[in-house]
């Protein structure tokens, strides 16, 4: 059994993949509770797609992918705000337009600039293609995300629960929302490496959803989300190594199973508490 677990870890590139996966899991899961409870699943998914052109341009220019992603995210969020402000369009409509447009631009640029194989990696992740330098950048970003959530925790809590009170005490719910979207954009870049653009949403939503089945305490939901995402990443990693399946799909399927189990546990608890 031990041998079975250790075997893949003999190769440095495999270890890097696992570490990258764990970093992505922790970053996504620490935002997941807020994504779930603030109803940001759609905008999170949209943002994950909308940063594609930024990543392609950064890749082509040889600069940090995080800078490219942030640039595209800022433009996308600004565009969504512009088209939805003052009731011209409902926000989800504006998100839909921007999301599709940016993603299409990303694919367009990708097919002009880089090889088609890279498209596959960005869409579905390539956990075994992580360079050592990437890991450092990813670790810094993950630390930034966690620090951001830790520092702004009570402010995020109050703006999510009661924006009027937040404004009354001098906070700007709008700015905090933008801040959260920027953290989401950074996190997405980390997660693209392991699960790809298409499945990033699962890492952002499913851990928080599963944890919410079991607990209604924000801090506990966040802690459980991180545990679930780490477990799913490890299970997915070994499944991907031994069964030779795409890492992203294996991770997300593990997460989905965790969600189903958590849902079952939550159902049983609820019926037990009603019965008693």
């Amino acid at each position: 059994m031990i041998d079975w677990l250790i075997e893949p870890l003999q190769y440095a590139f495999v270890v890097r993949g696992l570490v990258a996966g764990l970093l992505a899991a922790v970053a996504c899961a620490s935002l997941s509770a807020f994504v779930v409870w603030r109803g940001m699943a759609f905008v999170g998914d949209a943002l994950a797609h909308a940063i594609l052109p930024g990543i392609v341009v950064a890749y082509a220019l040889g600069i940090s992918l995080f800078i490219g992603a942030l640039g595209a995210a800022v433009l996308a969020v600004f565009g969504i705000g512009l088209f939805s402000r003052r009731g011209h369009l409902r926000e989800d409509t504006a998100i839909g337009v921007i999301f599709a447009g940016f993603f299409a631009l990303g694919i367009f640029l990708l097919s002009r600039m880089v090889s088609f194989q890279d498209l596959g990696h960005i869409l579905f992740g390539n956990i075994l293609g992580v360079a050592a330098g990437d890991l450092v950048a990813m670790a810094i970003v993950v630390a930034l995300v966690i620090a951001g959530v830790a520092v702004g925790f009570k402010e995020l809590l109050v703006t999510s629960f009661d924006p009027s009170h937040a404004v009354a005490i001098g906070l700007s719910p709008e700015l905090l929302r933008y801040g959260l979207l920027m953290l989401l954009a950074l996190t997405t870049v980390v997660a693209i490496q392991t699960v790809g653009v298409v499945l990033v949403l699962a890492l952002l939503v499913t851990p928080g959803a599963a944890a919410s089945m079991i607990s209604r305490q924000m801090v506990r939901i966040m802690g459980l989300s991180i545990v679930f995402a780490i477990v799913a990443t490890i299970v997915g990693f070994y499944a991907s190594y031994y069964a030779n399946v795409a890492s992203g799909s294996a991770i997300v399927l593990s997460l989905t199973v965790i969600f189903l189990v958590a849902w079952g546990v939550g159902q049983r608890r609820r019926s037990a508490s009603y019965g008693g």
């Binding site: 629960f161 009354a168 924000m218």
Partner: peptide, 23 residues
């Protein structure tokens, strides 16, 4: 201080009574 209109509060958001009063 404000006690806002009920509809402007997201009552489903997972916070405890003590957390809300701490706000």
């Amino acid at each position: 201080s404000i006690v806002p209109q009920r509809s402007s509060v997201d009552w489903r958001f997972p916070v405890t009574v003590r957390q809300v009063v701490m706000m």
